[in-house]
């Protein structure tokens, strides 16, 4: 599957050394303090996530090594974690990381059409990043919001009850850097029955 989070190599395109921002470094300390002393390795997942957020959504070779150093782990142990979880991207991604759910409920409710819309608007295929670095498009398995299928995730937020029209509208707004509202796109509150 073509997905920047599902590859086993780490690239070194961004060869600048990675340093923790002051704010994140204090967060790292808080995370490590949650675990007994000497068990700082347990913090590897939240610390990697923090680093990924600091670096525009993806992990470089330098970050893997920095995290390993921060947690006194070997490089390969951090790499194992980063390559295991698809949420850790090992290639550059666009500003909007679009994950389209394709598992059965969403698929039955038309996720294939959403994919076509996304491909047309962003101009990229699955696993690709658009030329203007605004979008990365990937397919994922169930994200657990089947009640409001079909749904997608962009960066940290869910967008539910999508149709070809409102999804296209959503993406065009993103392209123009306009604000969009998260959650259900038809005004549904959580998973209440759909209004007639």
């Amino acid at each position: 599957m073509n997905h920047p989070g599902m590859i086993n190599t780490v690239s070194n395109i961004n060869s600048n050394t990675f340093e923790w921002s002051e704010e994140n470094f204090s967060k790292v300390k808080t995370i490590i303090d949650k675990y007994p002393s000497g068990k700082q390795q347990s913090a590897v997942i939240p610390v990697l996530d923090l680093a990924q957020r600091q670096n525009k959504g993806w992990l470089t070779k330098n970050i893997i090594e920095k995290v390993a150093e921060t947690l006194s782990m070997s490089f390969i142990r951090v790499m194992e974690v980063a390559s295991f979880y698809s949420m850790f991207n090992l290639e550059p991604v666009g500003k909007n990381f679009i994950q389209i759910c394709r598992t059965t409920p969403c698929w039955l409710r038309g996720s294939d059409k959403l994919l076509e819309v996304a491909k047309n608007v962003t101009g990229c295929n699955l696993g690709e990043t658009s030329k203007d670095d605004k979008f990365t498009l990937v397919e994922v398995e169930c994200l657990g919001a089947c009640c409001n299928a079909p749904m997608i995730q962009i960066n940290d937020d869910y967008y539910e009850d999508l149709t070809e029209e409102n999804f296209k509208h959503l993406l065009l707004k993103l392209k123009e850097n306009e604000k969009i509202s998260t959650g259900s796109q038809i005004g549904r509150q959580s998973s209440e029955p759909k209004r007639k």
């Binding site: 599902m6 590859i7 086993n8 780490v10 070779k61 782990m73 070997s74 490089f75 390969i76 142990r77 790499m79 194992e80 390559s83 295991f84």
Partner: peptide, 19 residues
Amino acid sequence: VDDLGLLGRGESAEITTYL
């Protein structure tokens, strides 16, 4: 020596050293 590891998962799992 923490050199070898298992990267990836499922069908794409592979044994390797770091880089």
